[in-house]
Amino acid sequence: MLITLFYTAVGAILGSLFLLPMGEMFGAMFLVLLASKYHHSMSLHHHALTFIQIVLGISVGSLVQVGEWQSHLSFGVLFGLITCMTIQTLVGYCWLTQIEKWSKNDSLLGSVPGAMAAILVITNSQSTPSQKVIFTHTVRLVSLMVLASLIAYSTKLEPSMVSTSYIDNLLQVNMLELATAVFTAVGFGFVLERLGVPAPFMITGLLVTAGGHAVVPTVSIMMPDIMVFVAMALLGALVGIRIKSVTLKETLLYLKAGVFITILGLIVTLLIAGAFSTLLDLPYLVLVMSWVPGSIEAMTVTALMLGLEPSFVMLNHIIRLIVLHTLPVLFVRKNKRQTLRPLTEGFRLSRKSLHYK
C-alpha cells in the first residue's frame, strides 16, 4: 500500500505540473496503472474511498448557496437540465446495448453523464465490478477536460483568476467548522452505511455542508484545496487499480465506446441547449457549458474565462452532481431486489412442493 501511495503522490504532482484541470487525478491514474502493469501489485486501503466521499461531498456541498439557486435557477432551467441528462443517458444506453453489445447494467452505468466517484461507488458494490464502465467514463472525462482546457487556455488569464497557494487557502479555512462538518458527516454516514445505503459519506457530507450554509448563512464550511488534491489523486489511483487488467484489445474497444458516447453526449447537449435557449430566452453557449457532461471545475473555469455566467454554469453542474450522487442508492437497491427475487421465488416453490407432498 505504501508503494501505491508513493506512485499516487508522484503521479499527482507530475500531473498537476501540466496545469490541466484535475491533472492530479489523471497523473496518479496513469502512473499507478503503468506501475501495476510493469512493476508492482497496487492496492489501497478500503477507507480510501470513504475519505474521497467525505472530501468530495463537502466540496460540492460548500458550493451550494441557497440565495444563488433562487436567483439563477427556474423551473424551466431545471426541466431542461433533467431533460438533457435523460436524453444523454437514453442515447448512450441505446448505443452501448445495440452497437457495443454491452449488458443492460453496464450500458446504464456507462451512459450516465458524469460523476466518476458515484460510478466508482456503484461498481465497488457489485460482485463483479465492470472495468469497461470505469474505462469508458475515464475516456469521456479526459476528452471533455482536454476540450475545456483548450478553450479556457486559449484566452488570456486575468490576474484576479490566479488561484492562491495551498498554504494561503489552508489559512482561510475555519478548522472548527470544517471539523464539525466532517465528524457530523462521518457519524451520519456510518448510520446510513449500516442501513445499506451506498455512497453514505458522500451524501452526508454534501447534505451536512449545504444544510449548514442554509441554516446558518454566516457559516463558511470549505474543504482545503490540499485535501481535494489528495482526494482526486486517490480517486485517480483507484481508477488505475480498477482498470489495470484491461488488455490492449479491450482498451481499443472501450476507447471506441468512450469516444462515441462522448460525441453523442455533446450532440444531445447542443440540440437540447438550442431548443431551450429559444424557449427560455437564455444564451445558447451558457446552456451548452451548463449541461455538457464534463467536470464542474473545468466547465466553471472555462465559463469564467469566456464570460459565460460562471455562477449559473456552476449551479447547473452542482445539481447534476447531486442527482448523480443519489444514483448509487437507487441503482444498488434495484440490484438487491433483482438478486433477492429468485431467492424468494425459489422459497415459494419449495413451500409449494412441500405442501403437495
Rank of each mutant, 00 (worst) to 15 (best):
F6H: 08
F6T: 05
Y7Q: 07
T8W: 02
L17H: 10
G23N: 09
M25W: 05
F26G: 04
M29E: 01
F30M: 03
A35L: 07
S36G: 15
K37P: 01
L49H: 05
L49D: 00
L49C: 03
Q53R: 03
V55F: 02
Q70L: 14
F75E: 05
G80C: 00
I82H: 03
T83N: 06
M85D: 00
T86G: 10
Q88G: 10
L90G: 07
L90N: 06
V91Y: 03
Q98Y: 10
E100S: 12
E100H: 12
S103R: 14
S107A: 15
L109Q: 06
G110V: 02
G110P: 09
S111C: 05
S111V: 05
P113T: 07
G114K: 01
A118I: 01
I119F: 01
I122Y: 04
T123N: 10
T123E: 15
S125K: 07
S125P: 00
S127Y: 08
Q131L: 07
V133M: 06
T136H: 03
R140G: 09
S143P: 11
L144D: 00
A148R: 00
A152Y: 02
Y153E: 08
K156N: 12
E158K: 10
V173I: 14
M175H: 14
A179N: 09
A179L: 13
F183G: 04
A185G: 11
F190D: 03
F190E: 10
L192G: 03
E193A: 13
E193S: 14
I203C: 02
I203A: 02
T204P: 10
L206A: 03
G211T: 03
A214M: 10
T218I: 11
S220N: 15
I221T: 07
F229E: 07
F229A: 04
M232A: 09
A233E: 03
L235M: 14
L235S: 02
G236A: 08
E250Y: 04
L252K: 15
L252C: 12
L253M: 11
L255W: 04
A257E: 00
A257P: 00
F260V: 14
F260C: 11
G265R: 02
L266D: 01
F276Y: 14
T278F: 12
P293Y: 00
S295F: 05
S295G: 15
A298T: 11
A303W: 08
L306V: 06
L306M: 15
G307Q: 04
G307E: 04
S311E: 10
I318M: 07
R320M: 04
V329K: 09
V329D: 09
F331S: 01
R333M: 15
N335A: 09
N335M: 15
L340H: 08
L343F: 13
E345A: 12
R348T: 13
L349F: 05
S350P: 01
K352M: 12
L354C: 05
